[in-house]
Nucleic acid binder design. Structure first.
Lengths: 267, 267
DNA sequence: CGGAACATTGAGAGGGATCAATGGACGTGG
DNA sequence: CCACGTCCATTGATCCCTCTCAATGTTCCG
């Protein structure tokens, strides 16, 4: 219930190792257009409001000021940076991390195609987290002033913006529940199931997935050490719930994972 | 830095035990007006946008459809309830809790006068958490449709709504950092400092505070058992950092608390 | 005054962190 | 194409922080 409510996020590839993430339109095709319109984008159902007429959609197309490419390991933005735009992820995969004054940091989320990133910056006009690409990533940058301007005119867009922000709040609540209440195996099971769920929403089977992040990053997100993450993966594999090969995970028994999340030992 | 960035929230009373929370206007005065205008409210600087002209403020007054009183222990809303309004807390104190399918629950926040509650419901049109009053509480109910309607016309209000939601996201990030990275004493120290900070913003000294929640609720919020909360309070008291008398806390050495949050043992 | 709810404190156990060493995978450069 | 170095993952051993179970004390309210 809450588990599917959107804890986390994850990237992956359908079956083959190197296959790219985009469900349909290939990157090469995109290159032909200097600017791909939202109305044309195959991710629009994930990141744009539904129920707009053609005229409204044309206005929304004007939201995207530019497309950015972020190389793996590079930052889309960093804590402290001035905020002026939200970013829709077109392809690729990012993590967001917050840091305390003394340097310890925590992964607060993994973000994949179709999601909106940068909401944290609105409050103070400055970002409060780092957004780091975990693989080469392409984002559509939407100046926030322009978003607000158009949202004042198009009801559906306005409401959509509110829904996205509220959804992020709900997601965070789920992570809090996870960090505050669950034990290691429950956290990791919930993590994998969320993964599966989100991949399914993007047209993948979800039983085969490729982790884009290290064990350390998973551990940071889940409030565990990297060793515990690794050990728990191994335990799941021993019990026949999953198959682990480095970052390739095959989910064999998602029902059992659900039982683990629910505190129910085994079946 | 992140510590003051708004982890949590807390109510209290300035010095005397039974004193009410409202900084100035007493409840009795309010009763004379069927409806207290936002433009008149002494909390407006906390919950309303600044920089509006008189005409705009009059429109915003129309946001509040009614005032609700929630008795201690009662729910303002519950997970699953249909969402249709946000609530501004006028006086009192609430907690929000989320529950997983199998019944374990977690406090996700404590909310005091001047804060907006109910943002979680926008995403799915249904609330995802319970909001329970920890003392008799008065809220101003603002139908969300009306908020959106007026926000489309008044830029300052629109932006304010966005800031409030973003602020909630930033707060949640801080809680994640706390739950994922800190140890018991660090969590509790951060909790107390956040308390102090928020009280200060409301005109209280903040060195004397009265907890409105039980040890168990603190523990749930911080991901600790109630015994650990109690023990840590005692340890802080032994070390001369605070004085504890049931729910009355006196902060004697907030600098030392800051050191604890920063992982620095003692000084 | 008695009971319920809450807080404190102690003893013991366990889950996960930490420290440490080994092994694979990948990329770079010879 | 192979060698090497780096990064990452796995696995083991040990320790300790926090949970759990339990008993007692305190406050508040009917």
């Amino acid at each position: 219930m809450l588990a599917k409510a959107t804890f986390f996020t994850l990237s992956q590839a359908p079956g083959t190792v190197k296959s790219q993430f985009l469900p349909a339109t290939g990157a090469k095709v995109d290159k032909q257009f200097i600017k791909v319109a939202c109305s044309n984008c195959n991710l629009r159902e994930l990141c744009m409001p539904i129920g707009m007429d053609a005229g409204e959609f044309t206005r929304v197309d004007g939201l995207v000021s530019k497309r950015l490419t972020v190389k793996r390991g590079a930052a889309l933005f960093r804590a402290g940076d001035a905020f002026n735009a939200l970013h829709a992820i077109r392809s690729g995969f990012l993590k967001t991390t917050v840091s305390s004054a003394n340097g310890q940091s925590q992964v607060t989320g993994f973000h994949m195609a179709g999601e909106i990133i940068g909401l944290d910056g609105i409050a103070s006009e400055h970002h409060t987290c780092d957004a780091i690409a975990l693989e080469d990533t392409e984002v559509c940058t939407m100046p926030f002033e322009r978003i607000e301007e158009i949202a004042r005119e198009i009801k559906a867009l306005q409401h959509h913006v509110h829904k996205i922000m509220s959804g992020e709040i709900v997601r965070d609540q789920g992570v809090m529940l996870l960090l505050g209440n669950m034990r290691a195996d429950e956290r990791l099971a919930a993590f994998l199931l969320n993964l599966q769920h989100r991949l399914h929403a993007r047209g993948f089977s979800g039983s085969d997935l490729i982790l884009r992040m290290t064990r350390e990053e998973i551990g940071s997100y889940l409030g565990l050490s990297l060793e515990t993450v690794s050990r728990t993966f191994s335990k799941f594999a021993e019990d026949g719930l999953i198959t682990v090969n480095q970052r390739q995970i095959h989910i064999q028994n998602s029902e059992a994972l659900k039982c683990i999340v629910s505190h129910e030992l085994y079946h």
